[in-house]
């Protein structure tokens, strides 16, 4: 009985620590996306996304300020649904992916703002430049999935200036900032 009791205790402890556990962003099931938009001539939004990325985050609803997230992005996977434009965006006029094929984001400070709002401060490395950015995020939900896993998901928005990341602003005065629209769903490890 003693052995069974301690096994039970270990399992209980394990499930507690799992509550604060690491989540793997579900890029395989594509329940996550890194979308961007930039104004076209000031007349409309041009949208696109990065198709290939991976990442992990730590999150515990009991202690949201201890959360963290890191994401690695394959910049060559940029997709604006137009091959000629994607080729141009990958070239030296913009992302220069031959030289800078990877981008990444590592959170440095996550603050729970209440009402499901979360402020994520972190370092974004893009085009060889590392800068601190702030993502206004919100928790969408968490819970068991129907297939035996446990998931938590968030959405976030931020904007970056092309110039801040060493890219020339060639697209006109209305198109100097890129808005990032982020969606992550993680599967608890």
């Amino acid at each position: 009985m003693k052995i069974i009791g301690s096994v039970f205790l270990i399992m209980l402890l394990a499930s507690f620590s799992a509550a604060a556990a690491e989540y793997r962003i579900d890029d395989r099931g594509a329940h996550a996306s890194i979308n961007f938009k930039i104004k076209h001539l000031g007349y409309s939004w041009l949208t696109g996304r990065f198709n290939t990325f991976s990442g992990t985050f730590n999150y515990d609803a009991e202690n949201p300020n201890a959360a963290s997230i890191k994401v690695d992005i394959d910049v060559t996977s940029i997709d604006s649904n137009h091959a000629e434009r994607d080729k141009h965006l990958r070239g030296s006029d913009f992302l220069n992916v031959d030289k800078f094929p990877k981008a990444n984001f590592n959170s440095t400070k996550i603050t729970d703002k209440g009402n499901g709002k979360i402020e994520v401060v972190g370092e974004l490395t893009l085009h060889g430049v590392t800068k601190s950015i702030t993502i206004d995020a919100e928790k969408i939900g968490e819970g068991k999935d129907p297939w035996g896993g446990y998931r938590a998901g968030f959405a976030g928005e931020t904007k970056i200036r092309l110039k801040d990341f060493g890219m020339q602003e060639r697209l006109g005065p209305a198109s100097t900032e890129v808005y990032l629209d982020l969606h992550v769903e993680g599967i608890r490890k």
């Binding site: 000629e84 080729k87 990958r90």
Partner: peptide, 29 residues
């Protein structure tokens, strides 16, 4: 390059050359 995303090539507005689709990864590059 121009047909990597299934778009056809318009020739002077006279006719279009259809795309064969994307045959390899990052075909346009």
């Amino acid at each position: 390059i121009s047909t990597a995303d299934n778009r056809s090539i318009d020739v002077m507005g006279w006719f279009e050359i259809p795309s064969l689709g994307s045959l390899i990864d990052n075909q346009e590059d």
